[in-house]
């Protein structure tokens, strides 16, 4: 068999067809995800000597600095706190909405509701963040509204250019991301399980706690991860509405790379942030699996 025959056979086999189908995406992911990640990881062990010059001798100095300097530690903790709160608020508010759409809406109207929930995504993320500026600003919608009805005597200043504004804006931006996985998990629950629970003597509340909630756990975990992972590295929102007190780790990484010409330290901070997120994500996934009793939603006969 010639090489050409072998190739022809390979491309006709299921394996070959599969390879061809995934190769564009695989290549894309390799070039734009894996390569930059490796580059960041490598650079974090270097030292910058000039604008484009690096001393490529292996060093742990960046890690030492990143872990000991209180500034970086404070930014990292703030990022964790902000994304943690955003995740908590978003998921807690998203659950009732998902529950309503899954249990309270007629089946034929469900897709319409899901469609409506995605409407905020029709405008760009940047514009939505700007809109929150308009709402939360000193002379913004919220303050003038409250002044007009006499609820406050002078404009509130604690709602913009600080951590609160970052949390409010991010929670709003990620709400649909939290609603959808929870909705899907709730949709998968066999309704006869809820009837069985009632039949076995449990009230509506206990049925929710003993059946609905544990079975929705995989969706909740997915929602937590989907909100938590991107928000911890969010850069635009703290930049626009956070003020100096609302900056997060991503802003510092940007500063290191572009302003302070210290790419290796920026890379180090990025690697550390990724590690922390990875650890938290894994812990969450394990917790979610436990809550669902090892059942990940798949039904076997």
């Amino acid at each position: 068999m010639t090489f050409g025959d072998k190739m022809r056979r390979f491309f006709r086999s299921e394996q070959g067809v599969g390879m061809m189908l995934v190769s564009p995406t695989a290549l894309y992911a390799l070039l734009l995800l894996a390569v930059p990640l490796v580059a960041i990881f490598v650079i974090s062990f270097w030292t910058q000597t000039g604008v484009r010059d690096f001393d490529t001798t292996f060093t742990l100095a960046n890690y030492k600095e990143a872990l000991t300097d209180p500034l970086y530690r404070q930014l990292m903790l703030r990022s964790l706190m902000v994304s943690g709160l955003v995740t908590l608020i978003t998921v807690v508010l998203a659950f009732p909405i998902a529950y309503f759409v899954s249990f309270g809406v007629k089946p034929e109207h469900k897709s319409l509701w899901i469609f409506l929930i995605t409407i905020p995504f029709w405008t760009s993320y940047l514009i939505r963040v700007f809109l929150w500026k308009v709402i939360l600003g000193y002379n913004g919608v919220l303050n003038s509204g409250l002044l007009a009805v006499g609820a406050i005597d002078e404009p509130l200043s604690f709602i913009l250019y600080n951590v609160n504004a970052v949390i409010i804006t991010l929670a709003h931006a990620y709400a649909p991301f939290a609603i959808l996985p929870i909705f899907v998990a709730l949709e998968k629950i066999d309704r006869s399980l809820l009837e069985a629970s009632r039949d076995l003597g449990e009230s509506r509340t206990m049925t929710f706690l003993r059946v609905t909630l544990p079975l929705a756990a995989p969706g909740v975990v997915a929602a937590v991860l989907i909100v938590f992972i991107p928000t911890i590295g969010d850069y635009v929102t703290p930049r626009l509405v956070g003020g100096p007190g609302g900056l997060m780790i991503a802003n510092m990484i940007q500063t290191q790379f572009l302003r302070l010409n210290n790419a290796p330290l920026g890379a180090t901070l990025a690697v550390l942030a990724m590690l922390i997120v990875a650890v938290i994500a894994i812990v969450f996934m394990l917790l979610g699996n436990k809550a669902a009793g090892g059942n990940t939603g798949g039904r076997r006969k």
Binding site: L193, E195, A196, L200, G201, N295
Partner: peptide, 19 residues
Amino acid sequence: PANKRPTNMVFQSYAIFPH
């Protein structure tokens, strides 16, 4: 309501709690 009746049911799908 169902939870207050002296009846119990075996469902067609059996409704075994998967978790």
